[in-house]
């Protein structure tokens, strides 16, 4: 069984590292996690975001859940909010797209335009 002793060892290790940790590019990520989002697959999307951030040592970027954003047909929805408050809304997300958003948007600062709600709406219109 995973023991409390192991947890204490982790604590002691982390305590030493805490001071050296780098802080924040100012982004935060919000995942729509109401019934609609969960049913559409938001939990594995959130997991992929967190894993990808960890892989790149960017644990300073908080990933949180929110309720229904109001466009359930486009779930799972992920919002990336920059330090200045500007928001990019990514729709119909999956694990691969989530990893791409971390690499391209969070790490390199380039919005994945083709995954945004704007692109999805444009595509829907051209089909009409």
């Amino acid at each position: 069984m995973k023991s409390i002793q192991e947890l204490e060892e982790i604590r002691n290790r982390m305590r030493d590292q805490m001071a050296t940790r780098e802080k924040s590019g100012g982004y935060r990520i919000v995942v729509g996690m109401a019934t609609c989002g969960i049913a559409a697959g938001a939990r594995p999307v959130m997991r992929a975001l967190i894993e990808e951030l960890q892989k790149r040592n960017r644990n300073d970027v908080p990933v949180t859940m929110t309720g229904c954003i109001g466009v359930c047909r486009l779930e799972p929805i992920v919002e990336v909010i920059a330090a200045d408050g500007s928001k990019t809304t990514y729709v119909k997300m999956d694990e691969n797209k989530a990893r791409r958003v971390v690499a391209e948007h969070i790490i390199n600062g380039n919005v994945c335009v083709d995954l945004t709600i704007g692109a999805a709406e444009k595509q829907a219109k051209s089909k009409e």
């Binding site: 594995p44 997991r47 990933v63 949180t64």
Partner: peptide
């Protein structure tokens, strides 16, 4: 996965 996602959020 449910519990860890809740804790992180």
């Amino acid at each position: 996965e449910t519990v860890t996602a809740l804790i992180i959020s």
